[in-house]
Design a protein around this nucleic acid. Structure first.
Length: 268
DNA sequence: ATGCCTGCGGTTCGCAGA
């Protein structure tokens, strides 16, 4: 079973390219981030025509996530729970979850996330990012208690290690690479998750994002911020994982690429 | 040091992204 994650930076601005990629990559399940549209504007029919069941947690202009699955799914959930009752409501669409039920094959729960960027740091946006990651940690801990196959994937907006950024010094004060962000990410990993990309490619430079500005793609000034994290039961099934780097380059049409590329994991 | 580029909403620019 192939599970992918792709921050598309607007589903509707990028649809022909995204569909081209789906026709090549043919993931069983894919979570999308930054769809930048409300549910009614999501081009569900294009994916249904390709055999996907569609679950959308949209938002006007910003954010928005979706989950596409060739197999039936159960227990869909939209939105990340608050830490405690009485906390301010979170109106950003950044979390989606479902249990994938492939007929005659093993079940897996898929969580798709779009973590807040957090810049500028320090500031309220950075506080929101750290609190959001804390909420994610709590949700993941709850799900891990089931001791079942689980994959938490998406745009974490965290550069885990210096080897995941072309110039660590240049990013040292950025919300994506600050020690607090990396610690929050590490705390989620330390619940017992395996980074699928790093498990398969331990020492490789593998970026998933290149800024549109300053020729970042041409200079390979990239960062690795899109991740696929596996519970022990899922990690035992891991066969392969990768980054579809070519999607950052020119496509068949003149539609511009996203600034992120798809990441994927193949499980038995 | 700052902006570079891109998408969106909605109007000819501001916000957000990372």
């Amino acid at each position: 079973m192939k599970i992918a994650s792709f921050n598309v930076n607007s589903i509707n601005a990028r649809l022909p390219r995204i569909l081209d990629w789906f026709d090549k990559a043919r993931p069983d399940v894919c979570v999308l981030q930054e769809i930048k549209c409300v549910d009614e504007k999501f081009p569900a029919g294009e994916f249904e025509d390709r055999g996907y069941n569609v679950c959308v947690h949209g938002q006007k202009t910003y954010n928005g996530v979706a989950l596409l699955s060739k197999h039936p799914f159960e227990e869909p959930r939209k939105g990340l729970p608050l830490l405690q009752d009485g906390d301010d409501a979170d109106d950003h669409s950044r979390y989606i979850e479902a249990v994938i039920m492939p007929p005659g094959a093993k079940v897996i729960r898929v969580v798709g996330i779009y973590a807040p960027n957090g810049n500028p740091a320090p500031g309220p946006k950075f506080d929101y990012k750290l609190k959001w990651l804390k909420r994610l940690k709590k949700r993941v801990a709850e799900l891990l208690a089931y001791e079942e196959a689980l994959i938490v994937c998406g745009d974490f907006n965290v550069i885990p290690q210096a080897e995941d950024v072309y110039d660590p010094k240049a990013w040292s004060s950025d919300a994506l690479f600050l020690p607090e962000s990396r610690a929050a990410f590490r705390q989620i990993l330390n619940l017992g998750l395996t980074d699928a990309i790093r498990q398969i490619h331990p020492a490789k430079t593998l970026y998933t994002f290149w800024d549109y500005q300053a020729g970042a793609w041409e200079k390979d000034n990239g960062i690795r911020i899109d991740h696929l994290l596996l519970s022990p039961q899922a990690a035992d099934r891991l066969k392969d994982a990768g980054v579809d780097r070519a999607e950052r380059g020119p496509g068949k049409t003149d539609v511009k690429p996203s600034d992120h590329v798809p990441v994927w994991a193949e499980l038995a």
